[in-house]
Design a protein around this nucleic acid. Structure first.
Length: 530
RNA sequence: GGGCUCGUAGCUCAGUCAGGCAGAGCGUCUGGCUUUUAACCAGACGGCCUAGGGUUCAAAUCCCUACGAGCCCGCCA
């Protein structure tokens, strides 16, 4: 089989045939909690951008927040008092929590933080600022002048006839502040103003600069031209014939004289077994929820490994652990193909921190330490991991803690019992003799590694070992009579420490506990008589 | 009704653009590792590539049709 080229590189090659300078754009409307589908868009854009840069293109990456879009309705998470704001641009509505400058910023701020977390650093534009700075004025003029042509394009492509009062430009009413209740009654190209009537009864004049916005289907192509967008990913919803890319393409070419950007169409992300993610059906995982449990690199990997046009199935329970494992294995594998390496490279991105501690190991460490960060660090240090980047480790610890709490299946959970578990009563004489001997040997020895612990357990069945002799003595039998099954010994360890009959790999597990604790616990367990 | 995308092992998916022996990981099973596993190593099992036609020396791959899944054609990104 020929070498497989990663889709991002395929896209970059296609795009490079059109030219060497590129502007990769992405954008969404911060009207509510920004969900995971949007994350795919941004990661997709970032990867395309990186692939372009890697191939020597002069590329830039921008993110446009559609802060000037009107609020469509009072969403379930909003207070009823927002009724009066429906129809106003998001940037002109008060913040729901009062801590941000405006409504748009309230949802934008955590999203931008998430982007940073993922190692994605586009230049950020806010649509309201672009409008207020006059970036759209030229496009607004052209659109108003050639309104009928645009309407004809919309009709031809989408089959829908725009209303007679339709205008590509929606003024913001001076009185009620709404942008979707006004009708254009005239305009003046020289003074750059637009006249309107509003359903609230007001009428007046607004400047083209910051006095209103272009309707979406015109706004998009206008933006391409104004900013020079050449590559843009968008959801498949825009992609069909008669959709906004289709009309945008025509408007860009025929009205603004601009070639539409290279499209990257992506599919939705499905959640577990519940189906497509959609806000209307309530099947939603917000980005912040996602980042609570998934290390950023793995989230990137999840998106990067699948071609944009295929849907992604995301299951935050055990399959997540598999995904993390797969990523980490690929990361350290010497069998990785060039394709694998490329995926790892793209998952990495600048600005992400990485620790060499496997996620799965951390699930054990975390539970051994009962989530206490100082104790976790001690264990990590003892296990010989790199602890220089405490911030990264803390991120991993947070992910693991949240995962255990929110999604982990029961068999992945355990807790070291503070007190001797009552189930210790079920231990038999051999198991007690083992724990007693183990405790004594450990008491007089130095620090032991996971492997030391492992070997010590197995030494119990060797007739010439110290452990074997001590157990025989303790039980009052000869070493020949002693019949040891390691399985029972491991069971004794788990029961006395966790109160359950199985647990994480024992040697390694014991080495992450305090030695003194083990000595004491095993002695107590050996002596315990109900 | 019209359009777009997808359909490959039990699961998640590569491979389709550029036709050339049907692939990976996970799971399962077997064996091994000083027989604990949720760790590691080796191997095995696992397929009508959704179905039916067509083109071709040769089709998972290209063309047509059907079926299934998701989405769009509402100024809703």
């Amino acid at each position: 089989m020929a070498d497989i080229t990663h889709w991002a590189d395929v896209i970059a090659d296609e795009v490079l045939e059109k030219g060497k300078r590129h502007l990769v754009a992405t954008g969404i409307t911060p009207s509510g909690h920004i969900h995971i589908g949007n994350m795919r868009e941004v990661v997709t854009a970032d990867v395309a951008y990186r692939a372009l840069v890697d191939k020597g293109a002069e590329a830039e990456f921008i993110y446009i927040a559609d802060t000037y879009d009107p609020l469509r309705k009072v969403y379930p998470f909003l207070d009823e008092s927002y009724e009066e704001h429906v129809g106003k641009p998001l940037s002109e509505i008060p913040c729901p929590c009062g801590k941000h400058d405006d409504y748009a910023e309230h949802f934008l701020e955590p999203f931008l933080a998430a982007l940073d977390h993922l190692g994605i650093h586009p230049r950020v534009y806010r649509a309201d600022e672009l409008y207020k700075d006059g970036a759209y004025v030229e496009a607004i003029k052209q659109s108003l002048v050639r309104k009928d042509e645009i309407a004809a394009i919309l009709k031809k492509r989408s089959g829908k006839t725009p209303a007679s009062t339709w205008s590509p430009f929606n003024p913001i009413c001076n009185k009620c502040g709404k942008v979707n209740t006004t009708v254009v009654t005239g305009f003046d190209i020289d003074s750059e103003t637009v006249d309107y009537e509003c359903s609230c009864g007001d009428s007046g004049t607004v400047p083209m600069k910051g006095g209103g916005k272009l309707t979406w289907r015109v706004d998009w192509p206008a933006r391409w031209k104004a900013l020079g967008v050449t590559v843009e990913p968008f959801g498949k919803d825009h992609a069909s014939r008669g959709g906004s890319y289709d009309t945008g393409q025509a408007i860009a070419k025929e009205i603004f004289g601009y070639e539409a950007p290279h499209p990257i169409i992506y599919e939705w992300i499905m959640l577990g077994k519940k189906g497509a993610m959609s806000s209307s059906t309530g099947v939603v995982v917000s980005i912040s929820d996602m980042l609570k449990v998934v290390p950023p690199e793995v989230l990137r990997y999840l998106i990067i490994r699948t071609k944009p046009e295929k849907h992604i199935r995301f299951d935050p329970a055990l399959p997540l652990l598999t995904l993390v494992d797969e990523f980490e294995r690929l990361h350290s594998s010497d069998k990785a193909t060039s394709y694998d390496k490329r995926m790892i490279e793209l998952s990495h991105a600048a600005g992400l921190c990485h620790t060499d501690i496997p996620f799965k190991h951390m699930t054990t460490i975390y539970q051994v330490a009962a989530g206490d960060f100082d104790r976790i660090m001690n264990i990590v240090k003892r296990a010989g991991y790199d602890t220089s980047n405490e911030k990264c480790i803390r991120e991993l610890v947070d992910n693991v803690g949240n995962w255990l709490e929110m999604y982990a299946p029961d068999n992945a959970r355990f807790s070291v019992q503070e007190e001797l578990p009552v189930s210790t009563a079920t231990l038999n004489d051999l198991q007690r003799a083992f724990l007693k001997s183990f405790s004594q040997i450990l008491d007089k020895s130095g620090e032991m590694s996971g492997e030391d612990y492992h070997n010590l357990v197995y030494s119990a069945k060797e007739t010439d070992s110290e452990m074997n002799r001590m157990m025989a003595d303790s039980m009052g039998v000869s070493t020949e009579e002693l019949e040891v099954k390691p399985k029972d010994l491991f069971k004794a360890i788990y029961i006395s420490v966790l109160g359950q009959s199985s647990g994480p790999k024992a040697g390694w597990f014991l080495s992450s506990l305090e030695k003194d604790f083990i000595v004491k616990r095993f002695r107590e367990a050996a002596e315990y008589r109900p």
